[in-house]
């Protein structure tokens, strides 16, 4: 899941690199992707709260990831009218401290959910349909899992 969703993330025009798991653990690239997905919701003031100069400081990474996840949860709740199921929520400490790809994959899956339900979803879905078939299958399975666990 993580590898496929990283490939999907690379289709966004972010200042921060989305090359691999390490690039994503500080939360900066994911925040920039969310801003591209819905700039009205994940606006500049929200984006400016994500600290970019992180280095190896796991505390700042954890703080950024918490803001990203809180932003996503608010989006699901307010815009999509859903509560995210507990078993879809990532363990952020495992991402910030151990660069865990499984937990990072869960976070990316939630970002995917934002993309395929937002106002510009047509654009994002069409981009997904240009990806390699094997990646599309993983993305489809990820979306189906989100849909099957929706709590309205």
């Amino acid at each position: 899941l993580c590898d496929s969703l990283i490939l999907w993330l690379q289709t966004f025009n972010t200042a921060q690199s989305c090359k691999d798991v390490q690039d994503l653990t500080n939360g900066v690239a994911m925040a920039q992707v969310l801003h591209e997905i819905d700039a009205a919701w994940f606006d500049k003031p929200w984006l400016n709260r994500i600290k970019e100069d992180v280095g190896d400081n796991w505390r700042i990474k954890a703080s950024n990831l918490k803001k990203v996840l809180q932003g996503i949860m608010d989006y699901y709740h307010e815009f999509l009218g859903q509560q995210i199921s507990e078993d879809l929520l990532p363990d952020l400490s495992r991402i910030s401290e151990h660069s865990d790809p499984v937990e990072l994959g869960r976070l990316l899956q939630l970002i995917l959910g934002c993309a395929v339900n937002c106002e510009k979803k047509q654009e994002h879905i069409q981009v997904i349909m240009t990806l390699e078939e094997s990646v599309q299958h993983v993305v489809m399975a990820a979306i189906q899992e989100l849909m099957s666990k929706e709590i309205v």
Binding site: I125, Q136, M140
Partner: peptide, 30 residues
């Protein structure tokens, strides 16, 4: 050719799925 058939089926499944997503109302749950 079975492998070509499988490939076409897989593409069809993907296309159906993503097209159904496109027709879903924006912001609404699944």
């Amino acid at each position: 050719d079975p492998s070509m058939k499988a490939g076409a089926t897989s593409e069809g499944v993907l296309a159906n799925f993503f097209n159904s997503l496109l027709s879903k109302k924006t912001g609404s749950p699944g």
